[in-house]
Structure formats: structure tokens, C-alpha cells
Design a protein around this nucleic acid. Structure first.
Lengths: 334, 334
DNA sequence: CTGTTAGCGCATTCAC
DNA sequence: GTGAATGCGCTAACAG
């Protein structure tokens, strides 16, 4: 038999304490079933030997692994780390360990990870899943599963609704006197992009603003720079970008071209992943990814306890964070 | 017995295929021991039932969990995600799953996580560990363990040596004609900060430059902004910051004060976590965290296979990435 | 309160 | 090549 860690087992503790396995087991799971005396003896022996219950054996016996899996498209995308951190902290509070999976935005990889994790977790959190609805439903049938930023009816999900914040952004710009703005889009297949784009359109229509939509296949910063000339060419006086990185790219290009922000042109980002770390500090839409992570974990923990699989749709509203990149239209170009 | 997932077991497959458990087990681990015929039958039955080997049971039996643990101080610190991503990808190549732990920069928490993971992983990677040398050595005695950015003799470790890149930065500034520069420090207890600070001093002495060191207890961006007036007051014409965020803060404040970069003042960051996403694009020191993650994992995998615990000290040199925030001193202030 | 017994699902001897 | 038996370390009835 291959190498094995040499940790003391329940039997050795039992022998050392002069009791049986059962009592040792109980001492670690239901101490109230034992006399204080025995518990003390057992803990002393355990301490002495450096005994720690074997998680794997316990899992095999009980079917509870005390683990959950968290799968994201890309750990390195600044949107996710705070969410991961929050989820991890929340899991920790319930003594759960978390497997982290990185799908690389790839459905195949995501599916593979789910399979690999499957045997050793009690449930899943899929963030911005790239899987098809059918696949998600299938997996949800096998194990408790909650979604973040993916809206599949019947599957518990928490959604960050950037529409509210985006609408506020449009209103904010309207109030500042802007009459024409452009929405600088994000990744083609993205649920968030669709949501934000239509939110801009809807709000603009309501307020009588003109809006030009520019689409994008490339990611973030570079795209922000490249698209800026076209944005200016539309004659608009403000832009709302799909995300902060795109906005940051625009800021860089505008500075390069000597266009003052917000005096000559206003820019709004989305997701607030940069904090105030741009210059000028970026007006943006809050993202609430921390709450999303926390909420998803609470949902999951809930499902694990009362194994009722409720159809929850937990929506987190966003709001506008006004900083320094938006200003009155009077002074703007045109 | 509490809830249990209802996956088919090896026995059901055996029954369906008309063989015994043993054969099914072999079909999944050492198919070459069986006739092609039986293997085919077994796989067919397994497929039919949707059988997947139970990872936990297998781990209990073999002592190999196919998992490793990765512990970082803070997932949300932009330095770590690329490292995590690389490590995770590398683990995946060897069919390992990775537990992610977030220590919150807290030794207690780190210790607790190691304990919790202990029973279900074959090894650990500790990134920028906050544990004492003694604790690290103790844990390394129990299970294969490799360190990143922590230099404990006897424990396999991979170190990112920012000293080389920092020295290049000083040389670069000297070449541009700068005679006096300031090092804007980072967190007090940080190994990296000490390393960088002394690298700046050493290189400056060698090249006959004057250097002022400003220390910092606060993190990053805000500190960069606040410290800028003092930096300018020194009469230096260039600054090297502990990290990119600090540099970015300085950039923002310099812009605010109308000091042109790099015409009036030069700035160098460290870690290259921002890519070219500042304006002007930041000259900085590469970080190689991706390679560090990959290397650590390869080391660990190596230790798991040939269980020889070698004393490896793997050092990754860094180098200067010249972008747009450094320029000749002639035109600078003073 | 505590000991006895029987698995959890699988890998691995050892026979045949 | 394949089957039967044993045990990984622990929990959970069932007794007493």
C-alpha cells in the first residue's frame, strides 16, 4: 500500500485513554453523551499523541465532507477575488473548507472541475457559470448548487443587478445636462453586458437622452483606449463603460489626447473594482460582489441543513458611486 | 445515518456487469490487468449507471487524496490571484484539486486552516506565510510543504527576488541623469519591503546616487497620494515605490498638483500588477508570481512522487519593465 | 454513560 | 485473468 501520513488514529487514543473507539469518537462529536471525567481523559490522551480526527474517514462514514466547491471563470479577474474572499470567510464560519476551481471561461473545464470535486463536496457555488442551462440543471439535480450572476429558473441564485446603478448613472448624467451619451459595451455573451446595455437604453429613453452603443469583443483596458476616438466622434459628452477597466482605458486615452475629465467629457465605470485608484477618481456603479459571495454561501449552507431545495432568486441592487469623472455638460466639448 | 448522496457504488456496477467489485476496481485503476472484454463490459455498465469512483473512499483506502492546499494571506490582494491561477492550473495538469485558504494575514487563522485541511490533502503551498519559522518547520515535518516568498532553511521554497529588478531601476534612473531619488516604503514587517529597500540603497551607493527613504505603515494607494508632497519636498527627481499601488497613488497626486510625469518627475513601481493600465503607463519591476506559483506546484508534485525531501531554494530574478513614467532628469524639477 | 457490532466505498493482498 | 477476504479510520445503531 502506497505512502500514508503517519497520524495517530482513534484506536491509539482509545488505548492510551483506556476506553474504546466509540468513546473517543463521541468525545469529538457529542461530548455531552460522555461523563466529564472520560472526556477529559480522552482529550488528554489525544493531545498527548497529537491526534486529529481523520476528515476523510469521517466523510466516508457520514457522507458529510465539510467541503464545498467554488468555481469561477477567472481568479485573476479583479471582480472575483473579493467575492472569493467573502465566500471563503463565510464557509469558514461554518467550519467548511472550500475547493477553488478556475474554469478559464471554458465550459468543458468547468464541467470537468465539477466532476472532479463531485465526490468530496457537499455542494457547489458556480460564479458566472459558462455552462448551458441544461448542464446546470443536471448538476443541480445531483448536489446542492447555487448560482451567482446566472439566472436559471428553479436553481437558487443570487444576482447582482447592475441595472439599478446604471439607471442612476444615466439619471445623474441627465441631471448634469448631458443630452447624448455612449454605452461602451463588454464581452459579447455576457449576461451582465446585456443587462447593462438595456438598462442604459431604457433609462435614456425615459429621460429623453440619445444613446449610441458601441460593441466590443476585446477585453477591458486596451479596448477602452482604442474605442475612445470613435466615442468622441459621436459628439456625445459622456460615456458609460461596461466595466471599470474599460473606463480606465478611456481615461488614459482621453488624458493622452488632452481631453479634460470631467470638464470636457464625463466617464462612468461599472463594478467599482478600482476603488478610488484612478485619476480622476472614477464615478462608477457599486458591485456588491462581497455580499453576493456571502449570500450564496448562506443559501448553500441553508440547503445543506434543511435539505429543502427552495427556488430562491436573491437580487442585489446596485447604486451609483459618484466620484470625480462626471461633471456638468455645459463646459463639455461641442 | 444522515443524508448521503445517492451515487451508484462499485457493487452496483459489478452486479450490472456480472463481475465482482475487484474487477470493477481494477478496471478503473489498472485496466491492463483485465481482459479487454471485461473492461469493456464494466465501462459500459458504469456509463449506464453514471458511476464515478468515490474519491473519499479511494483516499481512505490508499492514503492519497489527490488534493493539495494553497494558503495565501489575502486573495483580494492583486499580487496573489495570478499566482493562484497558475498554481491551480498546474495542479489540474496532475489531476489534483486545490483547497484555497485565506489567512487574512493572521497566523492563528493560517494555523487553523492548515489543521482543517490536514486530513484531506497530500501537501501544502504556503504563500507569504505569516507563521513563525518554528511553526513552519513543524508543519513541514507532518506533510510535504513548500513555501513561496518565505525563506526558511531546510524547507523547499521559491523566492521572488525583486532586488535584481530594483537595482536595474536605480541604474535606469542613474542613466537618465537622476542624482537623487526617494524610496517610498511598504508594510513594516514585510520581507519584500526589506529586500527592496536595501536593494535600492546598495545600488544607489554603487552608482553614487543619493537616496532618501520614506517609511509607511499604511497600505498602497492612499499612502502614495499622501506621501507625495514630502517626496517632492526632498528635492529628488525620481521615486521608486514599494509597489504599483503606491506608485499609482503618487501618479494621481502628481497629476493633481500639475507635476508632469515623466517630464517633471519620474516614478517606478514594483510588482507589475497593473499591467499598462495607468496613465502614463507605469515603469515597474516584473513580479513573476505566475512562475512562482507554477514552480511551487512542480516542487510539491515532485515531493509527492519521489518522497525525498530535498532542500530546494528556487530563486526567481526580476527585471525592470520600462514604460512611460521614467524620463531624463534634465527637464525635471530643480 | 459506555462497549459491541457493522458498515461507508474502495484498493489490495492472496488464492484459484 | 478473476474472485474472496481484509482493512483504511471513523460513525452509528443496538445493547447493556
Amino acid at each position: 500500500m502506497p505512502p500514508r501520513q503517519n497520524r495517530p488514529t482513534i484506536n491509539q487514543v482509545a488505548a492510551a485513554a483506556g476506553v474504546t473507539k466509540s468513546s473517543v469518537s463521541r468525545a469529538f462529536t457529542r461530548p455531552e453523551m460522555l461523563s466529564e471525567e472520560t472526556v477529559r481523559k480522552i482529550f488528554a490522551a489525544a493531545e498527548e499523541l497529537g491526534y486529529v480526527p481523520n476528515h476523510t474517514a469521517r466523510a466516508l462514514s457520514t457522507g458529510r465532507h465539510g467541503n464545498i466547491a467554488l468555481i469561477v471563470p477567472d481568479v485573476a479577474n479583479p471582480f472575483f477575488p473579493p467575492l472569493i474572499r467573502a465566500a471563503q470567510a463565510e464557509a469558514d464560519r461554518s467550519d467548511y473548507c472550500v475547493f477553488l476551481g478556475n474554469s478559464d471561461e471554458n465550459p468543458k473545464q468547468e464541467d470537468k472541475l465539477i466532476g472532479r470535486f463531485g465526490g468530496q463536496v457537499e455542494g457547489f457555488v458556480l460564479v458566472s457559470s459558462r455552462l448551458s442551462d441544461a448542464q446546470i440543471i443536471e448538476h443541480a439535480g445531483r448536489a446542492p448548487l447555487v448560482l451567482i450572476n446566472r439566472d436559471v429558473p428553479g436553481i437558487p441564485r443570487v444576482l447582482i443587478d447592475s441595472a439599478t446603478g446604471v439607471a442612476q448613472a444615466v439619471a445623474h448624467l441627465a441631471e448634469l445636462g448631458h443630452r447624448k451619451l455612449v454605452y461602451v459595451g463588454g464581452p459579447h455573451g455576457s449576461w451582465s453586458n446585456k443587462q447593462r446595455r438595456s438598462a442604459v437604453r431604457r433609462a435614456a429613453r425615459k429621460l429623453g437622452l440619445e444613446v449610441v452603443v458601441i460593441s466590443n469583443e476585446f477585453p477591458a483596458f486596451e479596448f477602452g483606449r482604442k474605442v475612445t476616438p470613435s466615442v468622441l466622434a459621436t459628439g456625445a459628452t459622456a460615456a458609460i463603460a461596461f466595466d471599470d477597466l474599460t473606463a480606465q482605458g478611456m481615461l488614459a486615452e482621453l488624458a493622452e489626447q488632452g481631453v479634460a475629465v470631467p470638464d470636457d467629457f464625463s466617464v462612468v465605470g461599472c463594478d467599482d473594482v478600482l476603488g478610488a485608484a484612478t485619476f480622476p477618481a472614477l464615478t462608477t456603479v457599486s458591485n456588491r460582489s462581497v455580499e453576493a459571495g456571502r449570500a450564496a454561501l448562506n443559501l448553500l449552507m441553508d440547503m445543506l441543513q434543511n435539505q429543502a431545495i427552495r427556488d430562491v432568486r436573491y437580487v442585489l441592487d446596485t447604486s451609483l458611486v459618484i466620484r470625480k469623472t462626471t461633471g456638468p455638460a455645459e463646459s463639455a466639448l461641442q
